[in-house]
Design a binder for these strands. Structure first.
Lengths: 135, 135
DNA sequence: AAATAATGTGAGAAAATCTAACATATTGTT
DNA sequence: AACAATATGTTAGATTTTCTCACATTATTT
């Protein structure tokens, strides 16, 4: 499901929330952006907006920092991590595709058609849909 | 999993994000609070903080509004909805409990022990954990 | 026509975030 | 030991967002 990744990359959190969730200071978070470790989106008014992926990344950075790794090291590690996780995603995709029986495929197709267009405009969001928004 | 409900009720969204997600104006959202349809949390600085549940509720309200139902009606509908969904949750819980084999129970217990305390302090959050945070 | 309900709009205050600059503590280098 | 670089703290002033409150407007009910 590519929707999952879309949802996880939606920029919705302001820096205050991120500070609480990650226990990093605003200064630290901004510095990591300066160092190109993260690239949060911006509102019209230039405020940072973070996604779940950004937050995961910050938690990862924090872990590495606790291990005494410096910015350069972390930058490299995140690169590698990014690459390998992309590969793993692809693998998982292949695997799950192979494992689908024809019947399941037909069922999924029906589902797909039934819900087509659901994520086009947020106007189409309706009750209960927020549960679909994350993960 | 009661954690799911805990996560869904975590107040993290500011009104700006909620406006975008729901396509309601700030005025509307505040009015619905005044009408006791929602009860968002507050920051120290008195700003509203909404949870996923709040947002679902607002989307539900919007649906009802589109159907021409007034505040009183919506209030009542939300009450009923709340009650029935609680019942359904209980039912689901019963069902899933019955369906768990002894072996699965033991496995879950091990898991539980392994991850005990994880949600006590946000300090214990580590990389990849944000994916667990929603749904 | 008057009252009520739901929402819009504007003002002024308070809070959160922004950038930029300088300070400080720790680590690495010479 | 002295110096340089790294990572973070702190402060200031500007900008943006949100707050409450009051009044305006529009559509429905009585």
């Amino acid at each position: 499901m590519a929707n999952k990744e879309i949802r996880r990359s939606m920029p919705v959190f302001q820096i205050g929330a991120v500070m609480e969730l990650t226990e990093l200071t605003a200064r630290q978070i901004r510095y990591y952006e300066e160092q190109k470790l993260i690239s949060p989106a911006r509102t019209e008014g230039n405020r940072r907006l973070f996604s779940l992926n950004d937050i995961d990344r910050l938690l990862e950075i924090k872990d590495y920092l606790d291990q005494g790794i410096n910015m350069a090291g972390i930058r490299k590690l995140l690169e590698v991590n990014q690459a390998t996780s992309a590969i793993e995603e692809d693998k998982a995709k292949d695997k799950s595709q192979k494992e689908l029986s024809d019947e399941e495929l037909r069922r999924l197709l029906r589902e797909e058609l039934l819900h087509a267009g659901r994520f086009q405009k947020s106007a189409s969001l309706r009750q209960g849909d927020m549960s679909r928004f994350f993960h």
